[in-house]
């Protein structure tokens, strides 16, 4: 995405944020539009967030769960969505374990497709809501140093954040064990470090990623305890820095592993604000996609 597109989405989301505090948390904008939530992978936050965003915009919603559908009988992804599209729907929110799934659907369908995470590839709305939250706190993204900590290799959140933050002029510092950071990733214009205590003083924000144990092969690091000792974000670590650092986490958290409970619940943590902003951000994206053909992808 281009800088202008991101800017437009973030500005729109800021306007939508206020709707969530109204007595009647609903606007009629997407009345008569039908949105299908197609989640092939488990999700709590993103699915509820999208669903709430759709409801706040008055869209009609269909939730699709592969485990109770014809996917069990062997129907392919494309056939499934083509059939759903034939039922005259307007938008599909898709999460799938295969990288590029959303892009594939966007090519074969007329309906607007929103990527809610495709394997280890990208998770654009998460990165956008992260950027929205940072911008809310600092008033800008340009020139800030953002540390992405932990499991970069398996993180679609990291990829989307790297693309987005670079486009907005922020510095991105990746930090984690060498086995969890892809080689050659410096080519994307990011800095890489393997020492968390060296990164914390340089960073304005730490976005702490979840250790994706379900996607990992064994042997990437010796033990969970060792990971926590070397890369876990704890109060003691943060207190060494001269200034407070904003703490973010896309969830779900492994408390006591990549982040300590003290840090997660501290006054510098905006983890729950990220969740609230996520609804406003997704409302904004739905809004921008809803009318005619938009250039936002």
């Amino acid at each position: 995405m281009e800088k202008e597109e991101i800017q437009l989405i973030l500005d729109t989301a800021r306007s939508f944020r206020e709707i969530l505090d109204r007595p009647i948390k609903r606007v009629p904008t997407l009345q008569g539009k039908t949105v299908v939530n197609l989640f092939y992978e488990p999700s709590t936050r993103t699915r509820i967030s999208f669903e709430l965003a759709e409801k706040r915009m008055s869209a009609d919603i269909i939730n699709f769960t592969p485990s109770t559908s014809s996917v069990k009988k062997g129907e392919s992804l494309i056939d499934t969505v083509k059939n759903i599209e034939a039922m005259k729907i307007d938008m599909v929110v898709v999460r799938h374990s295969s990288p590029g799934a959303a892009h594939l659907l966007a090519r074969v369908m007329d309906a607007n497709i929103l990527n809610a995470g495709d394997g280890g590839h990208e998770h654009p709305t998460q990165a956008l809501l992260d950027m929205m939250t940072i911008r809310e706190k600092f008033g800008r993204l340009d020139g800030l140093a953002i540390g992405l900590i932990g499991d970069i290799s398996h993180s679609r959140v990291a990829m989307s954040n790297i693309f987005g933050l670079k486009a907005m002029g922020a510095r991105v510092i990746l930090c984690g064990p060498p086995t969890l950071i892809p080689r050659e990733i410096e080519r994307l214009g990011v800095e890489v470090s393997h020492h968390i205590d060296e990164v914390i003083p340089r960073a304005d924000v730490l976005n702490i990623l979840r250790l994706q144990l379900e996607r990992q092969k064994s042997g990437l690091f010796p033990s969970l305890r060792e990971y926590h000792n070397y890369f876990g974000i704890t109060r003691e670590r943060l207190e060494q820095a001269s200034k407070p650092v904003l703490i973010m986490h896309p969830g779900p958290m492994n408390r006591g592993l990549e982040i300590s409970s003290q840090v997660a619940d501290s006054e510098h943590s905006v983890i729950l604000e990220q969740v609230t902003n996520g609804i406003a951000l997704r409302m904004a994206v739905l809004y921008l996609l809803a009318g005619g053909k938009s250039e936002i992808r």
Partner: peptide, 11 residues
């Protein structure tokens, strides 16, 4: 809303 091509900015 539905007939426009480009969405107006929301303040």
């Amino acid at each position: 809303f539905r007939t426009r091509l480009k969405q107006p900015a929301v303040e």
